[in-house]
Amino acid sequence: MEKDSLDKIWGACLRRSRKAQFELYQLFSKKMFAICIRYTESEQEAEDVLQIGFLKVFTNCHDYKGNGSLEGWIRRIIINTALEFHRKNKYTFTNNADEHLQSIISSQETHHPIYYKDLLSLVKTLPLGYRTVFNLAIIEGYSHKEIAIMLSISEGNSKSQLSRARLWLKEKLISIENINS
């Protein structure tokens, strides 16, 4: 995406042009939807997060002061919206991890290499706390300091959750490979 045309679209978004808002949505919705899916429990929830996130982008567009990339700002809003969802719904850390894993294993029987969907399902098997920290730290690349602020937890808590998430994922990967081999 050329920077000039993006600036133009964003300028029109600030003037509440519906056309420009749609163009911005077209530009970023796919990427942001992929992020939503990683953070949420279901597709339905991912859709809700995307919708509310983009509404926030459009209504709070004047809060973007040009520090960092626009995409980074939008991503931050989407992620914060997803985290708000977690807090609001007060998810428990127990989930049906085994079921997810079973489906991954069954899909692996055809000996395809481990790709996006499988890794995504694997990340989704993580308990919510681990998964959120793993998403933020490894995939989004936030520092533990930032994560601590975003989740209102301590930095140490963030680090320990990440190491536990890694451990969990390694175990699952090994078990999948063992079954396949």
Binding site: F22, Y25, S29, K30, K31, F33, A34, I37, R38, A46, E47, L50, Q51, F54, L55, F58, I114, Y115, Y116, L119, L120, V123, F134, I138, I139, E140, G141, R166, L169
Partner: peptide, 23 residues
């Protein structure tokens, strides 16, 4: 980390079209 980041970061999935209508 590398494996997951490569596979999961910057992926694009098309959201259903009705979301824009809602927005």
């Amino acid at each position: 980390d590398q494996l997951f980041k490569e596979q999961l970061a910057d992926k694009e999935i098309s959201p259903p079209s009705f979301i824009w209508d809602k927005i």
